[in-house]
């Protein structure tokens, strides 16, 4: 490893941003793939992999991807929820890899929800 310049330092910092964002909770967008038994059976793993590939490909460091259990609507799995900081979460249903690509490009990157794939906007009330 050659000696760093100030530019190199900035580059390393940029590259580590994804890790930092994840741990600080300072992400702009969060994608949750629902991976209950129903989701897994309907192919949520493929959806998960597709999102992972999209996040890697985009090189964005402000997006986190995570999983959760069943969202309660087992017949419309695989499902995922996309949350942009400051706006209501959107639940997407009946996903496949092509839909993932579009959702990622439009909603996650450009912050425009893909209404035709969406089930609903918002979340249930919790106590």
């Amino acid at each position: 490893m050659a000696k760093l310049t100030i530019e190199d330092l900035k580059k390393i910092r940029q590259q580590a941003q994804g890790t930092v964002t994840m741990r600080e909770g300072s992400h702009r967008a969060k994608i949750t793939v629902h991976m209950g038994t129903c989701g897994i059976a309907a192919g949520a793993r493929k959806i998960m992999d597709a999102f992972l590939a999209e996040v890697s490909r985009s090189g964005g460091t402000d997006v986190v991807l995570t999983t959760s259990g069943c969202a309660g609507l087992c017949s419309r799995e695989p499902m995922a929820t996309v949350e942009i900081r400051g706006s209501a979460p959107v639940k997407y249903i009946d996903l496949d890899e092509a839909k993932v690509k579009k959702i990622f490009e439009d909603h996650v990157l450009k912050e425009k929800p893909v209404t035709e794939y969406a089930l609903v906007q918002g979340s249930e009330t919790t106590y």
Binding site: Q15, T19, R23
Partner: peptide, 21 residues
């Protein structure tokens, strides 16, 4: 609890060595 102390890149990722520069 946010960085691995043995990995300098993680330290740099959280603004490490900016003050030095």
């Amino acid at each position: 609890a946010l960085i691995d102390p043995d990995v300098i890149d993680e330290y740099i990722g959280r603004d490490g060595y900016v003050a030095t520069s």
